[in-house]
Amino acid sequence: MADWSTGLFDCFSDCSLSCGGNCLLYLLVHHVSGCLITILFGYFHRRTLRRDFGLKSSPCPDFCVHCFCHYCALCQEYRELQNHGFDMKIGYDANVQKQQNRGVTMAPMNEEGMKR
């Protein structure tokens, strides 16, 4: 198992990230829909990300990370994807194509495909 490329609390390492609008939208969805829904979604996403990249479950189990450090976990996962060459602006399908062109094997999509 590999370590994450950045720490859970390295949120200020990417301050140049201009995601203010996305953060506000996420905060609205997070608090209107009920925190548990977004925490569960985050937990399943983190678990999949760890499996796909062979990452350690640290500093604690995925559900606990999203329960107690939800926003830090989202930032860490975003940085991890960036450090693996993903560009969130182009979407999932374009990233799959980009990785395949580089010769990187990605986890297969489910039958319905991943929604943006």
Rank of each mutant, 00 (worst) to 15 (best):
S18T: 10
A94D: 05
C19W: 12
V96H: 00
F53K: 03
D87Q: 11
Q97P: 00
Y43G: 00
L24H: 06
F12V: 01
A94C: 03
D3F: 10
I39G: 01
L40S: 08
H30M: 05
Q82S: 14
N101G: 10
D52S: 14
L36A: 11
L55T: 09
I39L: 01
M109R: 08
F41P: 07
W4F: 14
C72G: 01
Q82A: 13
V104A: 10
L8K: 10
Q100E: 13
V96Q: 01
C75V: 03
H84P: 06
H45T: 04
P61H: 04
C23R: 08
C75L: 06
N101C: 13
T105F: 02
C67F: 03
F63Y: 13
E77D: 11
Y92L: 03
G34D: 07
F86I: 00
F53N: 04
G34W: 06
Y92F: 13
R46V: 00
T48C: 14
F9L: 14
N101H: 12
L49R: 02
C67P: 00
G21M: 06
G21Y: 07
R102S: 15
N95T: 02
V32S: 00
L55N: 13
F63P: 00
S57E: 15
I39C: 03
S16K: 09
L49A: 09
G113P: 02
G54Y: 06
C35H: 02
F41Y: 14
L25V: 07
H30F: 05
G42Q: 10
M106I: 09
K98S: 10
H70N: 12
E80L: 07
K56V: 00
S13K: 07
Q82H: 13
S5T: 09
Q97I: 04
G20D: 04
K89C: 13
E112V: 05
C72P: 00
M1N: 07
C60R: 07
T6R: 15
G54A: 10
F63E: 03
M88W: 03
L55V: 13
H30P: 01
C23I: 10
S57K: 10
S18P: 11
F86M: 05
V65H: 00
G21R: 05
Q82C: 14
L81S: 06
E111T: 02
D93V: 03
R102N: 15
A2L: 12
M106C: 15
L55I: 12
L27Y: 14
P59Q: 06
L17D: 15
F44Q: 13
D87A: 09
V29P: 00
N83A: 09
H45E: 11
E80D: 08
